[in-house]
Design a protein around this nucleic acid. Structure first.
Length: 581
RNA sequence: GCCAGCGUAGCUCAGCGGUAGAGCAGUUGUUUCGUAAACAACCGGCCGUCGGUUCGAUUCCGACCGCUGGCUCCA
């Protein structure tokens, strides 16, 4: 079974790669003189980079697609031929990018594939003939640097998606539509959650009352849970003297993300790009015994980083964001328990927010690193041990750790299967060394602490963006900005509606009355559009019997029930953070 | 930052070298209604900003700002 899957997988990948060649042939025939970069298969499809005499338009895309269909209909075989590098250089004369690739290949002989009149430098494999390229669609045009280097020319990249059957392609296109429907930028506007303003600056988020309600709920929950698990909640200022960042090394290594210093009484200050230094200073105000450790400082700390304008994106890539940060100071012996505690917290949080699936990655020591080899080994083993002991499956990313320590990254899968960068747990050998962060061990000697940075949600902005898309804006009751709308049928029911509102508010529920002079149907529609979990219809019947008629966001009409019954239902859903309403 | 596309009313979008339109939202009036949109009237735009071409620019050209898709990077 697994074998069949793997086979289908590689068949699909081969076909996608062949689709890239078909596209290249189409481009060659439509744009004689085109120069070719590379054209690999990627997740869901393929791309090819071209150097063309003019920018491509969407009309070109349609023309290329039509040409590709002709090529596929012609069903020309893919023919593999090996060539010496000299032969290859003759074949690809006039193709500077290909020549560059040939020069870089370690082998003496290189592979070429030809279909019809188009020949490409390629290791293969390919499908037997162009007719085997099945359901595909060209999706977008983008600029891409040759070899991803900003110093090299920018080529035009055409992306396409390709699948083994039209049904699969159709499914994929549906998924893209679904993703567009869930887009947090669109929903953020429609549900009145947040805004970003040109006047204020790109990448700077304003949380409106409704987004604010969600955020406060998350923050309160987060703080309570952290306090419960032995973290101390702390607060640090938004600016600090630049010297601090010189000591830490950020001024040298992280400069491109830092905002320019501002001068205050002849001293230079910067807006903080991270929270750790404040926590270190706090730790260092006293000498600490090993008996006091571990110490866990947690802060919802807002940081600012300069991001180039082209990379900003809704809530997921911004210039000011609030990390759900914490730093754990502990002894080497305590590291395992601490990591284990963090992983447990991560799992609890993910479950609570409704993420069932996630992938863990353990990133190990890169070539350039800070700290001692033993330290790295101890920390890396500890991270791996914890995951093994907790029976949490993970993948190793060799050499992908940050220079200051190994880390565990967790990628969340949302409701439609997309991955999001989520929790991260990083051991840091650099800062304790640079700031001389120590504790007094049992033998009376000062030792350097082990320091762990960790964020469970990542940043509130990005996490909320992810939540919005995960739930498509239909939040579970505990998170919903408005948990219930009370809908009076006629104006004479307003007083009763207000009474219901007051009672529910007294229970801490977020409710409001739709008092507009609208018909009930319009009010229900509005509540549906706003994705409010509970709608409480009140008319003559309900008023007489002290009831509410409960309609759920799902469309289910549960009929009249005593107000007390709804109260306990809603309170329970909120208190248990139920994912069901 | 780079490449490409886009920027028209609060929102979603039409339109166009002769000076701007729809739906929704908003306001007002009428309606008081039983599970996804009552009816009517009204209000609303320096057509992103700044230059240029033109008798005339929202429309064509350029620069800038912002957004979108990528490259690159990341919480």
């Amino acid at each position: 079974m697994a074998n069949e899957d793997a086979q289908a997988e590689s068949e699909l990948e081969t076909m996608r790669h062949s689709a890239a060649h078909v596209m290249a042939e189409a481009v060659q025939s439509l744009f004689p003189g085109a120069k070719f970069g590379i054209g690999p298969a990627i997740e869901d499809g393929f791309y090819y980079d071209f150097d063309l005499p003019r920018p491509l338009t969407n009309e070109d895309l349609a023309a290329i697609e039509a040409k590709m269909k002709e090529i596929i209909a012609a069903d020309a075989p893919f023919i593999r031929q090996e060539a010496t590098k000299d032969e290859a250089r003759r074949i690809f004369a006039g193709q500077p990018y290909k020549l560059e690739l040939i020069d870089e290949l370690p082998e003496d002989r290189v592979g070429t594939y030809r279909q019809s009149t188009f020949t490409d430098l390629c290791r293969g494999p390919h499908v037997a003939s162009t007719g085997k390229v099945k359901a595909f669609k060209l999706t977008s045009i983008a600029g891409a640097y040759w070899k991803g280097l900003e110093s090299r020319p920018m080529l035009q990249r055409i992306y396409g998606v390709a699948f083994l059957s039209p049904a699969d392609l159709e499914n994929h296109l549906k998924l893209l539509e679904e993703a567009a429907r869930r887009d947090h930028r669109k929903l953020g506007k429609e549900l009145d959650l947040f805004s970003i303003h040109e006047e204020a600056g790109p990448g700077l988020v304003m949380w409106h009352p409704k987004g604010g309600a969600i955020r406060r709920t998350i923050e309160d929950f987060w703080k309570d849970e952290h306090a419960r698990r032995g973290y101390d909640i702390v607060y640090t200022p938004h600016i600090a003297k630049v010297d601090l960042w010189k000591t830490s090394g950020h001024w040298d290594f992280y400069r491109e993300y830092l905002y320019s210093p501002m001068k205050v009484e002849e001293k230079e200050y910067i807006v903080k790009p991270m929270n750790c230094l404040g926590h270190i200073l706090m730790y260092k105000t006293q000498k600490h015994s090993y008996r006091e450790l571990p110490m866990r400082f947690a802060e919802l700390g807002t940081v600012y980083r300069y991001e180039r304008s082209g990379v900003l994106h809704g809530l997921t890539r911004v210039r000011g964001f609030t990390q759900d940060d914490a730093h754990i100071f502990c002894t080497p012996e305590q590291l395992e328990d601490e990591i284990s505690g963090v992983v447990d917290l991560v799992r609890f949080m993910m479950k609570t927010f409704g993420f069932e699936r996630y992938d863990l990655y353990l990133s190990t020591r890169p070539d350039k690193y800070a700290g001692s080899l033993e330290g790295w080994e101890h920390a890396t083993n500890t991270l791996a041990n914890v995951l093994n002991k907790m029976k949490v499956p993970y993948q190793v990313d060799p050499g992908e750790g940050v220079f200051y320590g190994p880390k565990i990254d967790i990628k969340l899968k949302d409701a439609i299967g997309r991955s999001w960068q989520g929790p991260t747990i990083q051991v840091d050998f650099n800062l304790p060394h640079r700031f001389d962060v120590t504790y007094v061990a049992a033998d009376g000697k000062e030792k350097q602490v082990f320091m762990v940075h960790r964020a469970v949600l990542g940043s509130l902005e990005r996490f909320m963006g992810c939540l919005i898309e995960h739930y498509a804006g239909a939040f579970p009751a505990w998170l919903a900005p408005v948990q219930a709308v009370i809908i009076p049928i006629a104006d004479r029911h307003l007083d009763y509606a207000r009474k219901v509102e007051a009672e529910l508010k007294a229970e801490g529920l977020r409710v409001r009355v739709d008092s507009r002079t609208e018909r009930m149907n319009a009010k229900i529609r509005q509540a549906q559009v706003d994705k409010v979990p509970y709608m409480l219809v009140v008319g003559d019947k309900e008023q007489a019997s002290q009831c509410v008629s409960l309609r759920l966001r799902s469309g289910e009409d549960l009929g009249a029930q005593p107000l007390a019954a709804f109260k306990s239902r809603a309170k329970n859903a909120v208190a248990t953070r139920s994912l069901e309403i």
